[in-house]
């Protein structure tokens, strides 16, 4: 069974069937098989958080899951956040307005980490925000503006329940 395995997965609401080698990482599957290159790959050993996506609504490292393990599961990548091509998710808008990114390499991972974070804790303290993003590395911003972006997003998103 090193031979290809059938895989059926829903990504951002669309179904995909593929036949893949068991050792293909989910991050590479998303990028190379589905051309969803918004999921970035930094360290490929779980440290940087750039590859974070949602699996059944929870944030996970896509570099530490084999694509075949996503069979039958529901995935969301950064491409699935905004409602349409010209729209941004409120969290994305907050990142843009608060200068929560510079080069943007880390941003998809931060966003996908923060979606379940704000769902579970819609009014986080600064300390909780810092703890919430502690599994994501950013080489540019110094994190201050990311924390501000989260605060801004929380303020805007709070009244109407969760995303």
């Amino acid at each position: 069974m090193t031979s290809p395995v059938e895989l059926s997965v829903r990504v951002n609401g669309a179904s995909h069937q593929r036949s893949v080698e068991p050792r293909l990482l989910l991050s590479d599957f998303l990028r190379h098989e589905l051309n969803l290159t918004g999921t970035h790959v930094g360290c490929e050993h779980g440290v940087c958080g750039a590859c974070t996506i949602l699996m059944d609504g929870e944030a996970v490292r896509s570099c530490l899951i084999f694509a075949v393990q996503a069979d039958g599961h529901e995935l969301t990548t950064v491409e699935g956040l905004a409602a349409g091509d010209d729209a941004l998710h409120p969290l994305q808008t907050a990142f843009r307005e608060a200068h929560g990114l510079q080069c943007g390499f880390c941003t998809p991972g931060f966003l996908m980490t923060l979606i379940p974070f704000l769902r579970d804790n819609p009014t986080p303290s600064d300390r909780e925000i810092r703890e919430g993003i502690s599994g994501n590395l950013c080489r540019c911003t110094g994190y201050q503006n990311i924390v501000q972006a989260v605060r801004l997003a929380a303020e805007r998103m709070a009244p109407e329940a969760t995303p």
Binding site: M1, T2, V5, E21, P22, R23, L24, L25, D28, E44, F66, V68
Partner: peptide, 11 residues
């Protein structure tokens, strides 16, 4: 691909 090939079982 990063990992070496392996035989995969899903009991």
């Amino acid at each position: 691909m990063k990992p070496a090939p392996f035989e995969y079982h899903r009991p």
